[in-house]
Design a protein around this nucleic acid. Structure first.
Lengths: 232, 232
DNA sequence: CTCAAACTAATTGTATACAGCATCATGGGG
DNA sequence: CCCCATGATGCTGTATACAATTAGTTTGAG
């Protein structure tokens, strides 16, 4: 499951700076590099077997993406995600993804809709048989198709960056009991509304869907926090 | 009128790479560097009196921002803004700025609203006396205050990047007769709705406002195109 | 005269070099 | 025993060096 993705990374990264960018980003969103970790250029360069040059160039992009920040006296460190950030990002995602769904409704073909039907059907099977990984993959696939229908590269890029930003929390959301069921229900409703050409309503639904996701995540985070306190 | 801005640029750019970034960005959005111009690192470095290193780091940011793109065989060139891009950006702006206005309505204080009142009043004077530059400055000030009320750094950053992206066209929009009046009318209506706490309605109004701006710009662009054709 | 091949110039991508600053540890004085 | 000063260390920011690749040009053969 990892080989093709690694290959993709290499193919995309024709240049060292891009490979470094990708690996650094992966390390951050997967919390291999924890928040507040200072990025030591020489160390990272050594890890990746390059010089500092590509590392520094990757760092510029990561800063623009909001994954790292400049330290007051030079250098960079991994951003912590504050509660504020989380709310910001979910809020922005809700309007952007809502808008993307709106556009997708206007532009989707019956073929697209059928593909989405199939994905949701597969997801239901996964839910029954408990294949969490496959369920997640299908979820991503569903969204990718949906937003490809929107046919706006800029919008897609923004949405993806925002999703990556809170990727660190995806485990928490998935762990939530019943989330999968809710997700399927929403997806079915979306497809129906899209078939009906009710773009405005699809937009509203997606916005609600994402805001609900934020609520669940917050709740889960609080639960985690309590659990830690009890332990500590 | 230029000295303080230049100073600002220097103050903000404690590092060479940031000064280079700002100057390059300025050159692009002011169409000093025309679309499809290839960025010759050594030339730019010489122009700015630095080495290639800061230039390359600035380039990474500009690429992430969508102002330049990688050439297939290495190097970068200034992006052309396609009609598609324009529609994309206006569409995205409409939802993001609409959302920002929504948040601003929830979070603005009466002080904020009074400040906005004053700005609009000044704008009316400018309109009468034909001070276009000052009118524009006040317009920016109005939006800045509005979106500061929204109190979301990420949202603000996204909006600013999108505005910068189509900054090249601001002259066209301003040239449009009657635009200023419409703008003032909308701003007044916005403030009234914000006072009433009608966030949803403010959001709708802003969305409409921006989409209308797109329409005007397109019309002006077409007119420009016809004029050029007749000339050529 | 035309086309191709090879050479030249230009330009990028990456690596390395160097200087300046900040930090930390160590040691001497109060 | 504590505090400040001073030197060593580490890291960044910028410049430069080098190799590979591309594009352009000239020259030579058909």
């Amino acid at each position: 499951m990892e080989a093709p993705e690694a290959q993709e990374t290499v193919r995309r990264g024709r240049f060292l700076r891009e490979q470094v960018y990708r690996r650094l980003k992966d390390a951050i969103v997967n919390v291999v590099l924890e928040p507040n970790t200072r990025l030591i250029e020489e160390k990272l360069a050594a890890d990746m077997g390059t010089s500092r040059t590509p590392v520094r160039e990757a760092i510029q992009k990561l800063e623009k993406e909001g994954l790292i920040h400049r330290l007051p006296k030079g250098g960079f460190a991994v951003n912590v995600i504050s509660d504020e950030d989380t709310e910001d990002v979910f809020g922005i995602r809700s309007v952007l993804e809502g808008y993307a769904a709106y556009l997708a409704t206007l532009r989707a073909t019956e073929d697209d809709l059928r593909t989405m039907d199939e994905i949701v059907a597969k997801q239901e099977e996964c839910l029954k048989s408990g294949q969490t990984d496959e369920f997640l993959r299908l979820n991503t696939e569903f969204h990718d198709i949906l937003y490809q229908c929107a046919n706006s590269k800029k919008l897609m890029a923004l949405i993806n960056d925002l999703r990556d930003f809170i990727y660190r929390y995806r485990v928490l959301i998935l762990r939530y009991e019943g989330m999968a069921g809710i997700s399927i229900q929403d997806h079915k409703e979306m497809i129906a509304l899209m078939r009906a050409g009710n773009a405005k309503q699809v937009e509203k639904l997606v916005r609600k869907h994402i805001i609900r996701g934020m609520g669940l995540m917050k709740r889960t985070l609080r639960r985690e926090a309590r659990r830690k306190k009890r332990k500590g």
